[in-house]
Nucleic acid binder design. Structure first.
Length: 419
RNA sequence: CGGGCUGUGGUGAACCGGUAUCACGCUUGGUUCGGGACCAAGAGGCAGAGGGUUCAAUUCCCUCCAGCCCGACCA
């Protein structure tokens, strides 16, 4: 991608009133733009990260046999009446009338629709188990949106739903998803721990949320220094300093809630009559689970964890581009041409190898400006080509997270990028 | 929803009861050319909307709208 034509310019100015670091950096770097309270556009750079995170999620779910589908956001009030959530779900639905005065809700979650699907497609125990997910826009009529992408009113969520014959089967799947979530967070460069949670208006009697360790997080969690115990501080007894499981010392961390997984049981299948006939010919309600991740919140959480005073630091796995190629300008026209050509050649070589980079082709930007922008944008690798490096027939290689600069042959840089 | 705060060119800010200033950005020309360079010349705002007080309002007051922060809740 050529930076001169990129939609989303960098800025020195933080948005008015912005306080959270991810909000400031994502806006300053041109990754996102606010439209109204709690509603944001993902500009090309932000959307690339978003898609990378989505694809990590897809990989981890597909390998477990989860099927991707897409359900509607427009949903009839009647369906929500069946589960008795039309007026009780919190945050409330956005509701409106169509031109025929039919009452419609904008979905904030999809238990009703997926259960409706299940009740028409599942008849026998032979149809179970299965699981299906989507990565789709949710609308939530929040009391208040906050902190940029961390809490918004319209966002893209991965929501997975699973259907089982028995509680035991659900338990096994639930644990598999818990493990998959751990891998998803890890691949996104975040340390997340599952914590027992209350199930809120989604329901069910058993759930875990994933607390992503981030210094700027608003939640306080307690972690055991030796076993896997973790809990939200608020749910613990005051003054407790040792692990209730093993007695080891507890440490506290700040965290941001991200994913939340639920054992729903028959909370939706019973009222919606989503049933199957078991081996004994008896009709039973389907046992369900549901599992959510807010993709945009995860994206923002990564920034809350991975940044320095100059900007964002993207993990390779989700970075919008693998590297930032920066040709510097020279007052000597001949050298200038050589620099541009070498840089462009590198760009094309990497591109044809399937490695997309951001190419800073701005001829009017000074070196300092390009470096500042590169730090802000936070691509994992920076490749500078200048009069200086060209004299050595090479380029300068720097990792965003490190201060170390290496002078390498361009061919070596290509092999490094490929590995 | 309760409490608090904010609203001035594209962005961020300052000032002020006498119709507006700065920085960044933008345009043009020139000089620079490894950490947001410099010089010169420009374009761009009737100050969120409405009402009130006043000789006079961007400035004071009220209402509304919008945004932010705390509470609550959450992906």
């Amino acid at each position: 991608m050529f930076q001169s034509t990129l939609l989303g310019k960098t800025s020195k100015h933080s948005p008015r009133d912005a306080e959270s670091i991810s909000h400031i950096l994502l806006t300053r770097s041109g990754y996102i733009q606010q439209l109204m309270s709690g509603v944001y556009s993902l500009l090309p750079m932000g959307f690339r990260v978003h898609k990378n995170i989505e694809n990590i999620i897809r990989e981890e779910l597909n390998i477990l046999g989860c099927q991707e589908l897409l359900m509607p956001s427009l949903q009839p009030a009647n369906l929500w009446m069946e589960s008795n959530r039309w007026d009780t779900i919190d945050p409330p639905l956005f509701k409106f009338e169509d031109r025929h005065k039919k009452i419609i809700g904008l979905a904030s979650t999809h238990e009703e629709v997926i259960t409706d699907l299940a009740r028409t497609h599942v008849h026998s125990y032979r149809d179970l188990p299965f699981s299906a997910y989507q990565i789709q826009t949710k609308f939530r009529n929040e009391m208040r949106s906050t902190s940029g992408l961390l809490r918004v009113r319209e966002f893209i969520m991965k929501d997975l739903y699973s259907f089982h014959r028995t509680e035991e089967d659900l338990d096994i799947f639930y644990e598999a998803i818990k493990a998959a979530y751990a891998r998803i967070y890890q691949r996104c460069g975040i340390r997340a721990v599952p914590i027992r949670a209350s199930s809120g208006s989604i329901g069910g009697n058993f759930s875990h949320e994933f607390a992503c360790i981030a210094p700027t997080g608003e939640d306080k969690i307690a972690l055991c220094s030796s076993c896997d115990f973790a809990a939200n501080f608020e749910t613990m007894e005051q003054g407790q300093t040792v692990c209730p499981q093993c007695g080891a010392v507890l440490t506290t961390e700040s965290a941001i809630e991200n994913g939340h997984i639920f054992k729903l049981g028959t909370k939706y299948s019973e009222p919606l009559h989503a049933t199957f006939v078991n081996e004994d010919g008896i009709k039973k309600p389907i046992i369900m689970g549901c599992y959510g991740i807010g993709v945009g919140r995860l994206l923002a959480t990564v920034i809350e964890t991975n940044h320095d005073e100059n900007g964002m630091i993207w993990p390779v796995a989700i970075a919008p581009f693998a590297a930032h190629i920066i040709p510097l300008t020279s007052s000597d026209d001949a050298i200038q041409t050589r620099i541009s050509n070498e840089a462009k050649k590198l760009y094309e070589t990497l591109f044809s190898a399937g490695i997309e980079t951001l190419f800073d082709d701005r001829s009017d930007a000074t070196a300092g400006e390009k470096f500042k922008d590169a730090d802000l944008i936070g691509l994992p690798h920076r490749i500078v080509i200048s009069e200086k490096t060209l004299a050595q027939d090479s380029g300068e290689w720097k990792e965003r997270a490190s201060k170390e600069i290496k002078i390498l042959r361009l061919s070596d840089i290509v092999s490094l990028m490929k590995s």
